[in-house]
């Protein structure tokens, strides 16, 4: 008895053209994998060198991140705390508006409203981060100063608001995809059984899509964690940790942007510190992105059945 493995139906033997194209496409994949490996390798190498000079215990336990000070501190915690503040703050600002907007556009908005809002959301998602940063520094902060005169020139609240605006399209678009994946036939069935439309939307569609919605929030937070320009321009570069949103915040990303503006001598401790921070950022966003994607695809797999018309 012979067993055959499944194949993809590519028949490299039969046709030189087939072989050439298969090779070319494999070559593209190899290039993509090689560049990914180079990125990870470069960060890893310098990070290992950094940890030869600075013990891991200081990296994890120091309460200040001041690699170029006379008595340097190498604690990653203050940077992580700043990143968490910005990411949470932005999500808290964006989530209610984005979620309501997603439900509204998916189930209630008329055709004209929906197309206007789609265009607006697409426009928001294509504005470059540096333009958002300008907006935060030159408009949002002065405007907030009118409300809180004690607001510092560089502060967390303005950065949170604008990062929230930047991640809003991510939540809206991906949540709508999750809500749209709930088969319309299931909702029609519910209405046919006597449920009101609101009940069908709130009690059926939202619970069925909630994993996908959660995934969209995680993916949006991943973007907020990686956001550099808004935070660098609007939140300043303080060395201490403050939980007051009216004061400045320093994140993993804004440290990198600030540090690179000085002259980074290769081999110096500051140079290594940048790579260590970048490696932490890589691990953090890689993991969060993986989690977000897993939630989105689990949400799709768990969606109730029915004809998808």
């Amino acid at each position: 008895m012979t067993a055959f493995r499944s194949s993809t139906g590519a028949h490299p033997r039969s046709d030189p053209r087939e072989r050439l194209m298969g090779g070319l496409l494999l070559g593209c994949t190899a290039l993509a994998v090689a560049s990914a490996a180079a990125v990870i390798g470069a960060l890893g190498l310098e990070t290992v060198r950094f940890f030869a000079d600075v013990p891991l215990s200081r990296f994890l336990a120091d309460l200040a991140w001041t690699p170029s000070a006379e008595e340097p501190g190498f604690g990653i915690l203050p940077l992580l705390a700043g990143t968490a503040q910005i990411a949470w703050g932005a999500t808290v600002m964006a989530l209610p508006v984005a979620l309501v907007l997603a439900v509204f556009l998916e189930f209630y908005a008329g055709k004209r409203t929906a197309s206007v809002m789609n265009a607006a959301v697409a426009a928001l998602s294509s504005v470059p981060a540096v333009v958002y940063g300008y907006f935060a520094l030159n408009f949002v902060t002065p405007a907030l100063k009118g409300v809180w005169p004690g607001l510092e020139a560089f502060n967390g609240i303005s950065a949170c608001l604008v990062v929230g605006l930047m991640i809003l399209p991510t939540i809206v678009v991906l949540s709508r995809e999750a809500l749209g994946a709930v088969p319309r036939s299931v909702l029609r069935q519910a209405v046919a059984l006597g449920a009101t439309r609101e009940r069908a939307v709130l009690r059926l569609a939202l619970p069925a899509a909630w994993l996908g919605v959660l995934g969209s929030v995680v993916l949006a937070m991943t973007r907020a964690v990686g956001e550099t320009m808004i935070v660098t321009l609007a939140a300043g570069n303080p060395t201490g940790v403050s939980w007051n949103p009216l004061e400045g915040v320093r994140t993993l990303t804004s440290f990198l942007a600030q540090a690179s503006m000085g002259d980074l001598a290769p081999g110096s401790i500051e140079y290594g510190a940048c790579f260590a921070v970048a490696a932490v950022l890589l691990l953090l966003t890689f993991g969060m992105h993986a989690l977000g994607r897993a939630l989105v695809s689990r949400g799709q797999a768990d969606a109730p059945g029915g004809s998808r018309s």
């Binding site: 008895m1 012979t2 067993a3 055959f4 499944s6 993809t8």
Partner: peptide
């Protein structure tokens, strides 16, 4: 046409 489905395997002739 079964062999183009990922994960398929076949025995026999």
């Amino acid at each position: 046409m079964n062999e183009v489905i990922p994960g398929s395997s076949q025995a026999g002739t």
